[in-house]
Structures are given as C-alpha cells and as structure tokens.
Design a protein around this nucleic acid. Structure first.
Lengths: 222, 222
DNA sequence: TTACAGTAGTGTCATTTGTACACTATGTCA
DNA sequence: TGACATAGTGTACAAATGACACTACTGTAA
C-alpha cells in the first residue's frame, strides 16, 4: 500500500529519553539497533508516529513496544529536524523525556531492538543519528529543573526516605549536599508527609518513610 | 507532481508567535486567513516546512513571506500534534516564538494572508486551529522567562532607557515595579552600559541611554 | 524669569533566604 | 554490650530581596 501527497511530507518520529538512578549513577535506557541504519549502535527508543495517535501516545507506544516500559510521565523536550539527521529520508523527531524510579521498571527486548539496556551517563557510547545531542539536551533540562521544580520526586517510588531523595540530587549534580539544609528545604516545600513507617536496611538507625502528599502536584515549580 | 511513501506521513508546519510591546500593551502578530480552512479568522503566521530546510529556517521563511518580518531571534516553544488539529489532514506544527522591539518591525500583507496586524493580548479574537493554545503557552513561557532570564532585553532597540526596560516588565506582568529595586537588579547583572547619550522626549529630565554590553549574551540565565 | 509639570535618578533598613557547620540518636550484628 | 553505620537535628552568619520618599533635570507656559 502506498500513500501519495501533492507536496512532499517528512516522516515524524518520537524519541524518548528515560532516566533512572541505579547504583549511584544516572542511567538512560538505550536500545541496540537491530537493523540499518546505524545497525549495532545504541539509540534512544522511539519510532514513527501513527496518523491516528497523538505525539505523546506515539511516544508511549514505541516505548512500550521497544522496552516494555509503560505508565511513565512523559514531558516533551524538543523537536529535532535538521534535514540530514536521518540518511533514509527527512525525519523530524519529537523528543520526550521521563524519570522513573529504579524499582518499577521492567525492560525487555522488543521486535525493533536486539537489546535494551540501562547505560550510565558516565559510560555512554557513541549514539545513532543525533541522539547524543538529544540526550545532552535532556540531561541539561533535567539538571536545570532539579533546581527550580520538584522533578526529583519522579525518581522516587511511592514511599522513600529523605536520604534516598537527597541521593538523587547528589548523583545528578555530582556533588555532595548538606544534609540539614537539604531537609529544611524539602520539608519546607510541604509536599511530602511521613507515612509513619520506617525503612530498615542494615545495621544502622532506620529512616522514616515519606510519601508525596498530592501526586498530581509534583513538578509544580516551587 | 505527487509524492508517494510506503507509510502515511503527516504534514509538518511551523507557527510563529511574535510578541512586541506597543502603546502600553503586549501585542502579537496575527494574520487574517485569506483561504479555507478558517477563512477570515485570525491565525499565527506559519506554514509548511520544506524538505530541504531546517525547522527554524522554515519558520523564518514563512514569517518573512507572510509578514515581512525578518532577522528575529526565534526560540522553539513546543510541538503540537493532536490528530485532529487541522481538518484537512494530519498536521504537526512546531511552534516558535520571538520578541521584537516595536521600532524595528515592518509588516506587510503577503500572498497567504489578507491582513497582518498587531493584536493586543487583551483583545484577542478567537483564533484558527489550536492557535489559542499555542499563544497561551507562548505567553506563559514569556512570562516565566522574564523572571529568570534576560529575555526582556529582546524587546529593546539597540539603545534604550531603564524606564523603557522597566515598562516591558510592567506591561507583561501587569503590575507596577519599584523603580529603585528594578534598577539595582538590572544594573547588578552587569549586562548593560551607558552609551553616554541622553534621551529627551518631553518636558522632563532626560534619561540616560543604555546598550547591551555583549549582544550574544542576552537570554543567558541570570 | 520663574513656577510648574513630568519623568529620571538615588540609599537605607528590615526581612527573608541561603549556607556553613558538628553532634546525638537508633538500629543491627558480632 | 560495644562497635559500626546511617538518621536526624539547630544555630549563626551572609546574601538577597523587598518596602519605602525625596531630589534632579528639562520643557513649557504664565
């Protein structure tokens, strides 16, 4: 079947940058390309948008198909459309990004990918297409939003400790934070509350567990 | 001539939100549509992206063709792609915005538009397509960036007074600002310098003229 | 020439916010 | 029961922000 238009049309894809924090490192979900172009190279998950779905729906579908990841909060990052960014035809890609808690993610290899893997931001390979540029921008956005929004909560499971939350900031900014100032600031936002439970893991004092008061409110600019 | 693809492709357009300040009001450049759909309604300037130009180049070209406006600093706003946003076919639009000084803009009616006009944000008509949504987002972005960037300088001609700059903030935020605190803050940024000239307009003390020290540096986050 | 109208330009103090800094508390395990 | 490991807590100084009122200069008209 063929589709014909009076004027030339570009292809439109979505690409998705999914970050998580694991083993003291910020990691991104990449797929190893199973077909040309750039066969064998690592790339962001993503693919062509269907004409009956929104851009965000397309991003969700591709993410699910390629990696098995679903139910994440996607935020649009930027649209990349240099004429030569794909060697096959003119492809414009709408990039999204999301942050997920480590625990909740289950990845699989799908039909478009030979492998799906969390890759540390410190050990990134060269990426296919202009995906390095997309990933750089996603990291810049993440890093900037840490400071003026509550985006960091998106890395957290439903219940978490303040030390775990602080750890997110420290891993992304790559520098230690003063514990007392951090707690003062976070608790001052009045966005989280104690669950009443403790988290015990190891031979030391248990930490209080917190939850977000109103999940709909996270990512509001403080 | 026809263009044929193995899979369906959406059309891709750009839409441009150009703001300026005139007569104590924030205004946006709109065109009156000369052809269906939405004939006779007001819409943002914009149009289809050619396959051999970048998205930004496409936005620039359409802006020039439809309004005669050129040489503005465009910033990508967001990409809108709901399946039904255009009644003709699937159209994905990459929206840009820009701020221009009042003096420097010369508008004309082009082939795609019956009229081109600066419309005040307080007196907006209903717009074609989802352009009201695009414009709303552009205004939100502008309003937010006023506070954490130096975007306001983009409304300024090469030489300007501090009162004129303050006026930009007051018009957009729709509330008065303390003159001393404003001057303290702006001069503290160390981004502008006195030209040595005065601006005289009326029976009152002349104002010092300033210029941006390094035009490449505006819009850096303070 | 002088008074008036109108906008430009200037400093201080109080409050809030941010930052540096060190010790005690509580659990586990040997 | 003592050692270890992480949780949890307050204060003092510095910096940034916000409120606030008067003098300076020019043009115009009496």
């Amino acid at each position: 079947m063929a589709y014909t238009y009076e004027y030339p049309h570009p292809a439109v894809t979505t690409d998705i940058v999914i970050f998580t924090i694991r083993h003291d490192e910020l990691k991104v979900l990449l797929i190893n390309r199973g077909r040309p172009p750039f066969q064998g190279m690592w790339a962001l998950p993503g693919g062509f948008v269907n004409l009956d779905e929104s851009l965000e729906q397309g991003a969700r579908r591709e993410l699910e198909e390629e990696t098995g990841v679903s139910d994440v909060y996607l935020e649009q990052l930027y649209t990349f459309g240099e004429p030569d960014r794909d060697p096959r035809e003119r492809v414009i890609t709408v990039a999204y990004y999301a942050l997920v808690p480590t625990d909740e993610i289950d990845i699989k290899a799908g039909s478009d990918a030979e492998g799906v893997s969390w890759i540390g931001m410190q050990e990134l390979p060269e990426l296919a297409f202009d995906h390095s540029e997309i990933l750089d921008m996603a990291f810049e956005r993440l890093s900037a939003k840490l400071d003026y929004s509550t985006i960091a909560f998106q890395f957290m499971p439903p219940e978490f400790t303040l030390s775990e939350l602080q750890h997110v900031y420290e891993v992304i900014h790559r520098k230690p934070i003063d514990k007392r100032n951090f707690r003062k600031r976070i608790l001052g936002l009045d966005l989280i509350e104690e669950t009443g439970e403790d988290k015990r893991d190891g031979a030391h004092r248990p930490a209080k567990l917190y939850r977000v008061k109103d999940p709909g409110r996270i990512d509001i600019i403080k």
